[in-house]
Amino acid sequence: MSANSVATARLSAGHERVLPSRRRALPLVGGIIIAALFSLLMILNLLPLVWGMLTSLKAEPDLFRFPPVIFDFAPTLDNYKRVIESGFLGNMQASLIYCVITVVSALALALPAAYAFDRFNFPFRQPLFLLIVASIPLSLGAAALLIPNYLYFTKLGLTNAWFTLPLIYTAHQLPMAIWIIKGTLEGIPKELDEAAIADGASHFGILRHIILPLSRPALGAAGVLVFVGSWNEFVASSVMVDSPALRPIQPAIYNFIGFFGREWGPLTASAMLAIIPILITFALLGRLIVSGLTKGSVKG
């Protein structure tokens, strides 16, 4: 699922307050319950990553040892070598290119659209914006959309090309990006525009010199979510392109499941390669992801 639900956050967030947290000394029982809950969360959410990482570094015999070894094994990169020999670097490269094109084009289309919806009055503005809002959750239903989409793109000859997936990803992520950015534009005072107009600036000049610099945090938040959503996309990726050279990582990993069968070494190695960029993004920009999800908190 992609970040389609920013909309939800925008209304619910209300006014974000930074108040000093009132922390009272917790009774012992409460402390134990909290520690237990937290450990359970850590186990459920982080253990698959850690164990997957360890598995990907094990040679075949170490994988089947019982009881399982945790650290006492000779780490090897053989699994990674096998995955890379199967062409996984090509898949990663394809994914990376798709994601860069998608992030750039989604933001380039979303910023002017958000600007128009926030600052101008034009015929059908309200119903058109409604359509954008409706498209945010609609692109969650990719499974239902993709069959008609596949038929239509086949008819037009748009499948199986380098631009096929960026086109689809951008369309799926665009409504959410418009919504996030519009939320921030609402907070930029209109007086700035008026002053610029009085100084002889054009509408495009305002967009370029006032709106663009001031909406950078929103562009960042939207961009991160667009990146994560496109990197993780599976359904469109597996349907719309056939040729191995165009195949991004998610369907490539899915194919590995059939190809490597129960060989969990190479399988986990490919999984690790797929999540490294996401984890790096998350470590550096985790706050942006959360704020992207809850964007628009300034105005309920």
């Binding site: 699922m1 959410n45 982080l46 698959p48 990553l49 994560v228 990197w231 993780n232 996309e233 599976f234 998610q250 990993i253 899915y254 999984a271 797929a274 999540i275 996401i278 998350f282 992801i289």
Partner: peptide, 9 residues
């Protein structure tokens, strides 16, 4: 964490 990782992985 599980939400930011792809469903496949």
């Amino acid at each position: 964490v599980p939400w930011i990782i792809s469903t496949v992985v």
